[in-house]
């Protein structure tokens, strides 16, 4: 609510007096230095060390690591493959999560509490365990193939594991709840009266959706897509367990370099390049759609 009171002039001059240097209270100092310390210990120092590492070999400071990675078709192919699988998986995740989040956002508080339990439930189990569950379902002798054969829909088991399909099913499954939660948070804040208002002005339900609901829910969807994409290109467990020989993703070669080659320099360079690629995509997203919109108050 906007106050309509006008401030008398003499009071306003009092406000414009130069602010004094304020000493921070102990609690303020504690939270300030505390959070800075946390950031330093768990983000700046490890990432910094990694970046430094990427510019080093046994011979000292160098760009060899980057040259090696960027000139090798094998690495570039894996980068491309990672981004491609990440993009497709993200698209599928968003298409599946959008209607679910929209549906949940219209429920009563009780309904939300109930349904959200089922959305979050998978998080109670370890990702490795959940991924093995999919192997049981999708395997040659798995539940889905057995069912489809028994139903007479297919004559032979389908190859659904250890290929691109397997990786994507796994990624979509793992990140679906994340996408639902993020979009739900934004959709819950959309006033449904807006849709009713649009209808009274002659808009069909379809038009009301595209002109009102979609633009208002988009910030949440973009944020969800971005986070899911970042998670996908950095995924390790799912491609390792559900992908085949041809579906190596970036996280896997990083692991391989460290574990088999003890080549920390190259591994670090791959990490930094991946980080730059993801940051680049983030900046691009922000330019096009204005991520900052997400943090505006739309009520």
């Amino acid at each position: 609510m906007v106050s309509t009171q006008t401030v008398p002039v003499e009071h306003m001059t009092a406000v414009t007096v130069r602010p004094k240097k304020r000493r921070l209270s102990w609690t303020q100092r504690f939270s300030l230095w505390g959070s800075l310390g946390y950031l330093a210990a768990f983000f700046v120092i490890p990432v910094g060390a990694l970046v430094l590492n990427s510019f080093q070999t046994v011979d000292g400071w160098t760009l060899t690591n980057y040259a090696q990675v960027l000139s090798d078709g094998y690495y570039l192919g894996i980068f491309w493959e990672t981004v491609r699988i990440g993009f497709i998986s993200t698209t599928i995740t968003i298409l599946l999560s959008y209607p679910v989040a929209a549906f949940i956002s219209r429920l009563s508080n009780r309904g939300v509490a109930l349904v959200m339990v089922f959305v979050i439930l998978p998080y109670f189990t370890n990702t490795v365990v959940r991924t093995f569950a999919w192997i049981v379902i999708l395997g040659r002798e798995g539940a889905l193939n057995s069912f489809l054969i028994a139903a007479g829909i297919i004559p032979e088991p389908l190859q659904m594991l250890y290929n691109e399909l397997g990786v994507m099913v796994g990624l979509v499954y793992v990140f679906l709840p994340l996408a639902i939660l993020i979009q739900f948070a934004v959709m819950r804040g959309i006033d449904t009266n807006l849709l009713r208002a649009a209808e009274t002005m002659g808009a069909s339900k379809v038009r009301a959706f595209f002109k009102v609901y979609l633009p208002l829910s988009l910030p949440g969807t973009i944020a969800a897509a971005l986070l899911v994409f970042i998670e996908c290109v950095g995924a390790y467990i799912t491609p390792a367990l559900m992908g085949g020989q041809g579906n190596t993703m970036v996280a896997q070669i990083i692991e391989r370099q460290v574990r088999m080659g003890l080549d920390f320099g190259t591994a670090a360079a791959v990490v930094v390049i991946l980080g730059v690629v993801v940051s680049g995509i983030y900046v691009l997203y922000d330019r096009i759609t204005g991520m900052t919109k997400l943090f505006e108050d739309n009520s």
Partner: peptide, 10 residues
């Protein structure tokens, strides 16, 4: 017109 105006915020 609605109680909370229902203006399109975007």
């Amino acid at each position: 017109t609605f109680q909370n105006y229902a203006l399109f915020p975007h």
